[in-house]
Deep mutational scan, measured.
Amino acid sequence: MEVRTIKVFTTVDNINLHTQVVDMSMTYGQQFGPTYLDGADVTKIKPHNSHEGKTFYVLPNDDTLRVEAFEYYHTTDPSFLGRYMSALNHTKKWKYPQVNGLTSIKWADNNCYLATALLTLQQIELKFNPPALQDAYYRARAGEAANFCALILAYCNKTVGELGDVRETMSYLFQHANLDSCKRVLNVVCKTCGQQQTTLKGVEAVMYMGTLSYEQFKKGVQIPCTCGKQATKYLVQQESPFVMMSAPPAQYELKHGTFTCASEYTGNYQCGHYKHITSKETLYCIDGALLTKSSEYKGPITDVFYKENSYTTTIK
């Protein structure tokens, strides 16, 4: 009895394709271990004539594949690729409408935090270190965002349907971005203890939790000093293409032309909904596939993004 075979390709990165001759009487799992086709788990399936010449994702289970996976995804987590594939199996079914010149995501599976993050990423200057993220990001900007969303979920250790947080998501993504040249110098002034300067680099240099107003941050924000008295913390120097200011959701007025974009969060910790506000020729609110415009805006804002380049204080 002759062994019926077909020729397929296996890959971990969709760049390096490895030619395989597979036995049609055995499952993919018996031949390769966990195997995925377009995100779908085909591990328990036997090869079919229609699979001839198709590319299958496999887990990096030998040295060659491990090197290829690390170079593309910059992670050695053995569960990463499987999590990416199972997320992709959902995100490829989502709709990605162009809204006001940006790629958004039609609401499904509690994905409003991903839509808000995706919209924000198209408006701030950011370059990702893992080629996987950078490639998928370019495709997302062009309207094909399924891979990018699935990668975000995998890097953030999230599953489809789980509630997510924009600030946490951005923080994970910033860790995989090139923020080497970003720098922030802060000064804390206390009447009792004097003053202390701190220099922050990388992710810490672009994120701040405690106030939404970048102007206020430049002037000074009140913080408790270690001595128990009130101290003032203010920005001395900022070198970065953008800054992200966050605070627990509270009524906040966004003035046209003073910011790049913002995240609105309605609801409580267990259950809520994100919308995205962007400042173009007027203010726009993007909620999944829905767009509304207004000249002014007041609502429960939790993150505001500002364009920056270089700032030095005039406070002496």
Rank of each mutant, 00 (worst) to 15 (best):
V188H: 10
H90V: 12
Q237K: 15
A154T: 11
T292M: 09
H256T: 12
F80R: 04
V221S: 04
D62E: 10
R139H: 12
K106G: 15
Y155C: 02
E125C: 06
Y138P: 08
Y265H: 00
Y214N: 02
V8E: 06
T266F: 08
E281C: 04
C271H: 12
V22H: 03
A40I: 13
K280V: 09
N61W: 14
T198W: 11
P34D: 10
D180C: 07
I6L: 15
A136M: 08
T313I: 13
T116K: 01
L81D: 05
K191G: 13
H18F: 07
L88Q: 05
T19N: 11
M244Y: 01
T282R: 10
C225I: 00
Q30I: 11
L118K: 03
Q237M: 11
M24L: 14
I301M: 03
Q238C: 01
Y234G: 01
E52N: 12
N110M: 02
V8M: 15
S240R: 00
G39C: 15
D13S: 06
S86H: 06
F217G: 03
Y284C: 15
K316Q: 15
C182S: 06
L153I: 07
M24G: 11
K218C: 07
H276M: 08
E68R: 07
S279Q: 06
L290T: 15
N100S: 14
F259E: 01
G220T: 03
Q31C: 12
E308W: 04
M245H: 00
T258Q: 13
Q270H: 10
N157T: 01
V243A: 01
K95V: 15
G257I: 00
I286Q: 00
L179N: 00
E144T: 07
Q20Y: 10
T43A: 14
Y284F: 11
A108F: 04
L114H: 02
E68G: 07
D135K: 10
F128M: 04
L254C: 00
H276Y: 07
Y306L: 01
D165C: 15
R66G: 10
K280C: 12
L173V: 09
S171C: 15
D41S: 12
Q122S: 03
E71W: 06
F70G: 11
L283G: 01
E239H: 12
A262Q: 01
F80A: 03
K191I: 10
V221I: 14
P224M: 15
K229W: 09
K95T: 14
L121A: 10
L121Q: 01
A132Y: 03
F305I: 11
